[in-house]
C-alpha cells in the first residue's frame, strides 16, 4: 500500500499555513476553496521536496518565497476564445448594447496570462468598437501579468486558439492579428493598443474604476461562498448602470440579494446586466 507522502497535509495543517501567511504577509487565502487549495499546496511541497515544517520555515525565512508560493498556488490555465459560444453570445447579445455607450471601459478580472483580454480586443475590433474601448486586465499573480503584457504565445497553443476563434464565427483568420516568429506568435500593436495590465487582488483590494463590461471567468470557483459574495459585490459596485457582468460557464449568480440587481442575459454563459 502506498504510504502518505511527506507532501500530504491535513485540512488542519492547511489552516495553519493560511494563518501563518495572514500573520506575516499581505496574502489572505482564508476565503479560498479548501480542497483545491490543499491540492495546490501539496503539489508545491512535492515539487520542492518539502514537508510541512520545511514549508513553514520557507514562508517565514526565505525572501521571495511567499510570492513564489502565491504564484504557484493560483490556477492560471486559460486559452483564447475559451468557450467559443460565449464569445458568439457577446457579439450577438451584448455588443449591440455596448454600442450605445460613447466610451466603453472593460475589465477582465483574473485575466491570467492575457488570452481573454486579447480575445476581447479582437472581438471589439471586428465590431468596430475597439477605437472607443479600453480594456483593463488584472490578476493577483504578478508573473502572469508580465506574460500578458508581452502578448507572445507559443505557436503550439495557437492551433487550439485558431479552432476556438473559428468556432466563434469570427470574420477573419486569427493570423491577421499576430506575427509568427520562430515558435511563437506575437499579437500586433493594432490589437494591443487599448489595454492596460496590472496587479489587483480581488479579495483585498478595492474598486479602481467604473466599467461598462466586466468579465470575471473561472475565478469565483476558487473561492468559498463568503468570498464569492464579497467579490461579486465589488464587481457590482464597479459596474456602471446597465453594465454587463460575465461569469464562467459554471459560475451562476446565486445570492438572491445580488441576483435581484441583475437581469439574466444569457443562461448558458452566465451573462448578466446590472439593472439597479
Amino acid at each position: 500500500m502506498a504510504k502518505l507522502t511527506n507532501a500530504y497535509i491535513t485540512f488542519q495543517e492547511l489552516d495553519e499555513i493560511i494563518l501563518l501567511l495572514n500573520n506575516i504577509s499581505d496574502y489572505d487565502l482564508s476565503g479560498y476553496s479548501k480542497s483545491s487549495l490543499k491540492r495546490r499546496v501539496q503539489r508545491i511541497m512535492a515539487l520542492e521536496k518539502m514537508d510541512i515544517v520545511d514549508l513553514k520555515n520557507a514562508i517565514t525565512n526565505i525572501e521571495g518565497f511567499q510570492t513564489f508560493l502565491m504564484n504557484e498556488i493560483t490556477v492560471n490555465v486559460t486559452e483564447m476564445f475559451r468557450d467559443p459560444d460565449y464569445y458568439t453570445a457577446l457579439r450577438t447579445e451584448v455588443f449591440p448594447y455596448l454600442e450605445t455607450f460613447p466610451r466603453i471601459k472593460l475589465w477582465s478580472a483574473g485575466c491570467s496570462t492575457g488570452e481573454e483580454v486579447y480575445s476581447l480586443a479582437i472581438l471589439l475590433s471586428e465590431a468596430n468598437l475597439y477605437d472607443r474601448s479600453f480594456i483593463y486586465g488584472t490578476d493577483i499573480n504578478g508573473q502572469v501579468i508580465e506574460t500578458a503584457k508581452k502578448a507572445i504565445y507559443p505557436l503550439k497553443n495557437i492551433k487550439l486558439y485558431t479552432e476556438n476563434y473559428i468556432a466563434t464565427t469570427g470574420a477573419n483568420s486569427l493570423s491577421t492579428y499576430y506575427t509568427a516568429m520562430y515558435d511563437a506568435a506575437i499579437f500586433n500593436q493594432q490589437i494591443r493598443k487599448n489595454i492596460l495590465f496590472s496587479q489587483h487582488n480581488l479579495a483585498t483590494d478595492s474598486i479602481f474604476n467604473e466599467f461598462q463590461f466586466i468579465s470575471c471567468r473561472n475565478v469565483l470557483i476558487y473561492f468559498d461562498p463568503e468570498l464569492q459574495k464579497k467579490v461579486l459585490n465589488l464587481l457590482y459596485n464597479s459596474l456602471s448602470e446597465f453594465g454587463f457582468l460575465c461569469l464562467g460557464s459554471k459560475e451562476k449568480l446565486l445570492y438572491s440579494d445580488l441576483r435581484a440587481k441583475f437581469k439574466l442575459v444569457n443562461r448558458d454563459f452566465n451573462i448578466y446586466q446590472k439593472i439597479k
Partner: peptide, 21 residues
C-alpha cells in the same frame, strides 16, 4: 461530474470545481 472541470469535495460537504491542469 461536469466535463472540463475537476470535481472536488469541500470539508463542509459541498462540491468545488477547479479548472487546473
Amino acid at each position: 461530474a461536469t466535463p472540463g472541470y475537476h470535481l472536488l469535495v469541500e470539508p463542509g460537504y459541498t462540491f468545488a470545481l477547479d479548472s487546473s491542469e
